[in-house]
């Protein structure tokens, strides 16, 4: 997954991916090369999660009451 793709991830997906990466790394199964790539991705995911939390601002929208009315 490219850094660009990570930036578009919602919090839950990023958080879950980060957890999975850590578990993979902790398993010691990946090759050295893979583990370097995993760590780099994990680092980006962690930073992304942090950024999402720091920049979060509650958005509230209101649906039009007439919209999609079915009677």
């Amino acid at each position: 997954m490219t850094p660009d793709a990570i930036i578009t991830l919602p919090f839950e997906a990023a958080y879950t991916s980060l957890q999975e990466i850590i578990e993979l790394l902790e398993s010691g199964e990946p090759t050295l090369e893979e583990s370097v790539a995993l760590f780099e991705r994990g680092r980006l995911l962690g930073a992304h999660c942090q950024r999402l939390l720091d920049q979060a601002e509650l958005r509230v929208t209101q649906l039009n009451e007439r919209e999609n009315e079915r009677d």
Binding site: I22, L25, F39, C49, L53
Partner: peptide
Amino acid sequence: DIAELRAGVAWLNGRLRGAALDYADSR
């Protein structure tokens, strides 16, 4: 709770670094 999430993310970031270091150590 966002406070818990912040703590969770910080914890995961630490765990990630730890995992990477452990990986390197084990190798």
